[in-house]
Every structure is written in C-alpha cells, then in structure tokens.
Design a protein around this nucleic acid. Sequence first.
DNA 1: TATAATTTTAAAATCATTATTATTTTATAC
DNA 2: GTATAAAATAATAATGATTTTAAAATTATA
Lengths: 144, 144
Amino acid sequence: MEKRNKRWTLDDIRAYFAQHDIRISVYRLKIFEYLINERTHPTAEEIYQHLKKELPAISTGTVYNTLRYFLDKKIIQQVNVEKNEARYDATLSWHGHFKCLGCGRVFDLNIENLKLSGLDGFEIFEKHLDLKGLCPECLKRKKY
Amino acid sequence: MEKRNKRWTLDDIRAYFAQHDIRISVYRLKIFEYLINERTHPTAEEIYQHLKKELPAISTGTVYNTLRYFLDKKIIQQVNVEKNEARYDATLSWHGHFKCLGCGRVFDLNIENLKLSGLDGFEIFEKHLDLKGLCPECLKRKKY
DNA sequence: TATAATTTTAAAATCATTATTATTTTATAC
DNA sequence: GTATAAAATAATAATGATTTTAAAATTATA
C-alpha cells in the first residue's frame, strides 16, 4: 500500500510552481514540500504543528489560505474521508482513500476498476472514493 | 437515474421504527417520511425549512439531533459529497452520489463494478463514492 | 534602491453542528 | 383515564474548523 516515490527538492518545487504560475514564498514551498514528501494526508492543523517547529512565526491562517490557494491552482486535492476535518493530498492521480478509525492514518487505495451506470450526458469534474474501517496493524493489536 | 419507489405511509414508518427499536415521535416520523419519500438528499437546514411549514414549532436542534439519532440507529446514511454541508439519505444500499454544481441536486449512482487492490487485512466499515460535475439539464441550459 | 503588489500575522467573524437546561411529550403503571 | 418516570424538544449557548479583515512584512520589479 505504501509507495516509495523520490523526494522532491525545493528546486523541484520551485520549478513546479513556475509551471503552474504560482508565486514563490517560504511558506508555500514548505507546505507543499511537506505534502508531497510525507504523503500522510495531513489536516491544516497537522501541517501547522509540524511547520511551527522549524518556522515558529507561521500562523494557522497562512496554512489555511495557502491550502485553498493550492486547491485553486489545482496542484493539491482535498480528502474528505472524515466529515469534520479536511485533509490534503499533493498526489493528483485517481485513487481512493481509506481512513483507519483506530490509528487515524489515511492510506491510498489503488482503484483497479470502477464502472458506473446512469451517467450519460453528465459531465464529471471530480471523483472521490473514501472508505473507513480498521487497518491490519490496529486489528492485530486488538486496539478495537 | 430516477427510481420510482412506492411511498411509505406513516404506518409503514411506525412499523419500521419498531423493528429498529426507535421510539415514535411526531418529528421522527415526519423527518424520516421526508427522507424516504422525497429522496432529495436534503441538508438538515432543508429538512427544517420544509417541515416548518407544517410544524412551525420545530427547531433546528431537533432536526440535527434526530438525524444523528437515525445515523446511530443505522436507518439513514450521511452523504458528504460537499465538504461544508452534510446531506442525508434513507436508502441504505451501496450506491454513489453525484452532485450537480449547477442546480445543486444530488443524484444516486448505480455502481456496476468496483475493484480495489491493496486492502488485504483491512476491515471495511463504510464506503463512499462521491462525484461532482454538471447534470444534463444544466449543460443543456448552458447554465455554466 | 524605491515602489507597487502580494503575502502574512493576529484577531475577529462566520457558519454548521453540538451541548445544555428547562419544559413538554410519551410510555407505562395504576 | 390519571400519575409517574423516562425520553424528546425548544431555545439558547457553546464549539470548532475555516474564512475574513486590516495592518505589517515580504517579494517582485522598475
């Protein structure tokens, strides 16, 4: 389930931003770096808590605004597997998400096949497949 | 895409509540009746606005609490196709949802086939498939 | 380096939802 | 049918994630 992708350098991200007409700032670089290299589907609050260690002046507003800006520029997607917390994912390919209710982690899912009917004449902009349950580790540890 | 199901009478609902160990009240009957017979996947606010015409003393808190109670009793499901508004569906069979960004309507989707990989050892409690886009009517009217 | 434009902070505002508490309604015993 | 206990509801306050605002700081560029 885990995929090992090569880590992006800040220069990779700078080039990517340039391609997408995104002005560069320290926070934008660091927020995107965290999303693309850690791939843990963090919430805004988790991003804030993580970056605060290195950049103590950061504010939650900046995290929220930057994420909204990235969504607008279509370089990240929102993961709504849980109603009351938005999570963010810099991987744009079509895949699903599984949230473990034990440990709270969100896993990526490969979708081998999906066939829907009754969508003739509809135009689709977004597709989301979200599952909830327990991961093998939590089941093994009898956490629940 | 539209399914024509026979309408439930209040007595049907009373019997259904009894089966599910749900105490009867006027609001519970009317809220469930609206969900099961209209099948428009309304928000709590829409349910409140609709029922207020007939039952002016109803409060929003009652709508929210009743919906949460129904979820708890597993006779309805929550539709989270839109982040900032919970919608509710009394149809429990596995199906997807499509929200039209033009008219705001939520349509049911038949899922002919879904194959996922990488879920060995996982235990799944919930599955949600949510799409967004434009419906044929809105496309035809060139609303967007 | 100066200027304009954009980004960020800190704080207030928003908005859907939940919790609280007094009151009303419902279920059941008598 | 009436009394009693339990549950449901109304009105309101509280919550919490997210957005907005306005002033200060940073960045781009002339």
